[in-house]
Nucleic acid binder design. Structure first.
Length: 316
RNA sequence: GCCCAGAUAGCUCAGUUGGUAGAGCAGAGGACUGAAAAUCCUCGUGUCCUUGGUUCGAUUCCGAGUCUGGGCA
């Protein structure tokens, strides 16, 4: 029998944190964050990380688990998340995934398989430099020869993905297009209730702008400075996070604060839109709308009603 | 009051040697299977300020007006 799994997803700044915690209280749930940046220690303000106080004694996982120079990606996420989920089931509790990283959520929910041997960073870097030296078309043509389907679906300018497809073939002797096809048809081991929190676009953007202003007031710049002072390099994946990459040039005097704030608001808006695009493509998603205008109990009731139906009364 | 420069897409502006116009940004849509808060793709009709004149034809040239900058009084 499939185990129940609740996912609270949605664009940044839509209120996932609060709702997931309230939901956990009502269901005896424990929260696993599906967020590519909140895993990192010392990155609190810029990631709008849940505070201890907000957690309100609800157990949270995948928060503050890594140092900013540690490797984190879907594979690491999935591995850790699965072990937390299993542990939560053993204790007869309900796992609630909360976060905005749709890619991670899918990998977890669909149980996509990733093998530890399927990666070679050096090889990938070499491919990047090939693209730089001979052009993106050169690299794309290379892919076309080994995996025409993948080449057809990946734009030549998207070097990261072109390179990964080539890397995948070299390492596994299998085409990534075929691998993806198989993974897409995988049957989920979970009985998942996937909720996407949403609100009117203009309202979301207002909240994003406001949240950035608050981050500045709360000392985001100082946080970035501390990270740099601790020796974390600006090229680290963690430092590509929103709020970090925009402010490093400010510290170096290469950009003024006002411009950086404008940039951060803008890229956060773009990000929210990309998240929404991702979730729109999830056929099983249940959209919870106007989350900003509604009472929290009203929202929780809607979520719980769906859960009751999906889980058929089990666990709840 | 006078002089100069502007007035074109939501914003900043380019341009049309006179044949009704295009970039960046904003915005919208999309893709995504090991960097995903990343990476990438697609989408631009607007009284070209108003009004006379010249012209087959004016947003473009000329005149007047209005507004906005800047300068001089």
């Amino acid at each position: 029998m499939k185990k129940p799994l609740i996912v609270i997803a949605g664009p940044t700044a839509c209120g996932k944190t609060k709702i997931s915690i309230e939901l956990a209280k009502k269901t005896g749930g424990e929260i696993i964050s599906a967020d590519s940046m909140q895993v990192y220690k010392y990155m609190d303000i810029g990631t709008a990380k849940v505070t201890k106080k907000e957690m309100d004694d609800i157990p949270h996982y995948m928060i503050d688990e890594l140092y900013p120079d540690e490797k984190f990606n879907v594979v690491v996420f999935k591995e850790k998340a699965v072990s937390y989920i299993n542990d939560i089931y053993l204790r007869n509790k309900l796992p609630i995934i909360a976060g905005g990283t749709g890619f991670y959520i899918n990998a977890l929910v669909n149980d996509n398989i990733f093998m530890s041997t399927n990666e070679n960073e050096e090889l990938r870097k070499n491919l990047y430099s090939e693209a730089e030296l001979f052009g993106v078309e050169y690299l794309h043509n290379k892919l076309k020869k080994i995996d025409p389907d993948a080449a057809a679906s990946i734009h030549p300018n998207n070097i990261k993905r072109v390179a990964r497809a080539i890397e995948f073939y070299i390492l596994t002797n299998q085409r990534i297009s075929e691998h993806n096809k198989i993974e897409k048809n995988r049957v989920s081991p979970y009985n998942t209730a996937l909720f996407v929190l949403n609100m009117e676009r203009g309202e979301l953007y207002k909240r994003i702008d406001l949240r950035v202003d608050i981050m500045i007031e709360n000392g985001l710049l100082k946080e970035v400075e501390n990270l740099i002072n601790m020796g974390y390099d600006k090229n680290l994946v963690s430092m590509q996070g929103l709020g970090y990459k925009e402010f490093i040039p400010v510290l170096n005097g290469e950009k003024n604060l006002e411009d950086a704030v404008y940039e951060l608001k803008k890229s956060t808006r773009h990000f929210a839109k990309r998240q929404l695009t991702w979730f729109k493509a999830q056929k099983n998603a249940i959209w919870v709308n106007d989350v900003d205008k509604r009472d929290i109990d009203d929202i929780l009731n809607e979520i719980l009603n769906h859960c009751g139906r999906i889980f058929n009364g089990a666990i709840l």
